[in-house]
Design a protein around this nucleic acid. Structure first.
Length: 581
DNA sequence: GCCGTTTTCGGCCCGACTGTTTTCAGTCG
């Protein structure tokens, strides 16, 4: 049932949710979620930790949870969990996803009206049964009904790329208001998370009511969800929620940290403040003991920015992308945060398509556009013959394309160097789509899976590792095949594939297509520590798509990547030397 | 359920908004 720490963590999280539905103590619920996070961040092999009876030494895991984990791992079952799960209907889980419903209300609905699914809830709303319950009312019933309709329409999240475009349009208007002193995008959008559930804005102003008034009355607002003195929420016509908070100038630096999050990061920051005798809120950092001296003088508070707030807590500045509660605070304390890669560090890209397969621009148009970006090199990697859906090239067309690329380089028409590459299909048995006799004519080869996504984990892992072991393979393309919000990644043992890449000196692509962003940022930090080298590629199918490199940089930064970890920050001469070796 | 150099009980990050009730609980971020 559970054979690794991620499975165990998932189960602990599930226990937390079940306890929430039981109406349990909120701190007990949090203890299970905390323990799940502690396990996920555990560096060691869980089996060894259990064997050496060191589970309780992990912060966040105490007697009770340690015992449960041990039972689970040794027997494969956890009776406590199974009894809990069977004691309540499956459908209650889903009700937690309805905005406005938490554990307490769901419990009341279940116990008073026997509601155990979204459908039951719908019917009860329509019959007007909800409003008759104690502590519920007409408005609550209407809100639940609206949330339900909304929920059934869509589980609306947007890609970061799309959300960012919408948010910047709103920000542009916000900063132009004369009442607005500062305005910024906050939340997961500022942290550059790959998908976004809502847009967060933070404003400094001495006239919050006017800003709120403006925000809730804009033409792009479909519905006002909340309208207070300092906080409002609206649903945009694009279907996504946008929240605005207004604070004073003096509070702005504190509020920006708070509203950028993540929740985990904030909790850790507040704990840290408490340990030092201070209380951190979205408005201030105050001494808990009034006789203790403050970290900031009253007069200096209007100059508080994120950097000096982190410094006051004994930390170096933590860029928003890293604020995920995944070790960044410990690293900032020791001054060991990486110097994150920046857009200007990129000197070229390797995964670009042309009209020779399924691209929209010709090879020469792609080359000219890449030169316009100021890069030193571009690699063309069109599809191989098995990707017939993508107009994959037969051997003769590939050889002809290679010849054309050589000619472009010899002509001196462009300052940028062009590498002759290929996005070569990994066939279902792990062999590549062309023989090594053909592949040896290329400067580099990106290998990717484009079909037979349903293979089991073992087969898929062996398939990709076999491709990695081919001597002509250079880069592993879009590792998991996921399409964000559309298609799950295929089953794959990621650590094994990462290890194979390192052992065979192959590059791992960070596919910067906003829909892919694959390999996921959560895996990069550990992988580069083990020695994996990254290549950020736009997977461009047109000259416009070259800008996707920016989405790739976001994700690289979230994955703690510095310039040194990224192959395509190298100058042309070094790249050529590597590809020849 | 976890934690602890104010340690085995009594805290646990903290504040805004909504709705129901009339002083506060639930939800959210």
């Amino acid at each position: 049932m559970a054979d690794n720490k991620h499975d165990v963590a998932k189960l602990l999280d599930e226990i937390g949710v079940l306890l929430e539905l039981k109406g349990e103590n909120a701190f007990k619920i949090r203890a299970y979620h905390n323990a799940a996070r502690a396990l996920e961040n555990l560096e060691e092999d869980i089996d060894i930790v259990i064997k050496e009876e060191r589970l309780k030494e992990v912060p966040g895991i105490g007697d009770s949870i340690a015992e449960k984990i041990t039972i689970l791992i040794s027997t494969g079952h956890l009776p406590y969990y199974e009894e809990l799960k069977h004691s309540m209907p499956e459908g209650l889980f889903e009700l937690l996803k309805i905005p406005g419903l938490g554990g307490k209300k769901i419990k009341a609905l279940y116990e008073e009206l026997g509601i155990k699914s979204v459908d039951d809830l719908f019917n009860a709303c329509r019959k007007g049964e909800i409003e008759k319950l104690p502590h519920f009312g007409k408005k609550t019933q209407d809100n639940i009904l609206n949330s339900l309709k909304r929920y059934q329409d869509s589980g609306r999240r947007l890609l970061w790329w799309e959300a960012s475009r919408i948010a910047h349009e709103i920000l542009q208007e916000l900063v132009q208001l004369k009442e607005v002193i500062h305005a910024e995008i906050a939340g997961s959008l500022r942290r550059k998370l790959e998908t976004i559930g809502d847009l967060d804005f933070l404003v400094a102003s001495s006239k919050p009511d006017l800003v709120m008034e403006w925000f809730t009355k804009q033409p792009w607002v479909e519905k006002v969800l909340a309208h207070g003195k300092t906080k409002s929420s609206v649903r945009l016509k694009q279907g996504i929620q946008a929240d605005l908070r207004v604070v004073s100038s003096k509070q702005y630096g504190f509020a920006l940290v708070y509203f950028t999050g993540s929740k985990e990061h904030n909790i850790q920051l507040r704990h840290r403040a408490n340990e030092r005798g201070f209380s951190l809120s979205e408005y201030d950092l105050e001494a808990i003991d009034p006789t203790q001296s403050a970290l900031f003088s009253k007069s200096s508070k209007s100059q508080i920015n994120e950097e000096n707030l982190y410094n006051a807590l004994g930390l170096s500045y933590i860029p928003p992308e890293l604020r995920e509660g995944m070790g960044e605070i410990e690293a900032a304390e020791k001054g060991k945060l990486p110097h994150l890669v920046e857009e200007k560090d990129i000197r070229g890209v390797f995964h670009c398509h042309s009209t020779d397969s399924d691209g929209h621009n010709t090879l020469e148009e792609m080359v000219a556009a890449a030169q316009g970006w100021g890069w030193e090199y571009i690699g063309i990697a069109d599809h191989s013959k098995s990707s017939y859906q993508a107009n994959g090239m037969q051997e003769n067309r590939l050889l002809e394309q290679i010849e054309r690329i050589h000619k472009i380089n010899r002509s001196g028409k462009y300052q940028i160097h062009v590498f002759a590459g290929l996005e070569c299909d990994i066939l279902t048995n792990g062999e590549l789509d062309f023989s090594n006799d053909v592949l040896k004519e290329l400067d580099y080869v990106v290998v990717s899976v484009h079909r037979a996504f349903k293979q089991d984990e073992q087969t898929m892992t062996a398939r990709i590792i076999k491709a990695i072991e081919n001597p002509y393979t250079t880069i592993v393309g879009h590792l998991t095949g996921r399409l964000l919000l559309r298609r799950e990644p295929y089953a794959l043992n990621l650590p094994k594939v990462i290890d194979a890449c390192i052992a065979n000196h192959k590059l791992m692509e960070l596919n910067a297509q906003p829909l892919r962003l694959d390999m996921d940022w959560r895996y990069w930090h550990k992988a580069i520590d083990k020695g994996l080298m990254c290549c950020i590629n736009p997977d461009a199918h047109s000259i416009n798509d070259l800008q996707y490199v920016r989405a790739g940089i976001n994700v690289a930064r979230k994955g703690w990547l510095a310039k040194e970890n990224i192959f395509n920050t190298l100058p042309l001469k070094k790249v050529q030397a590597y590809l020849l070796s």
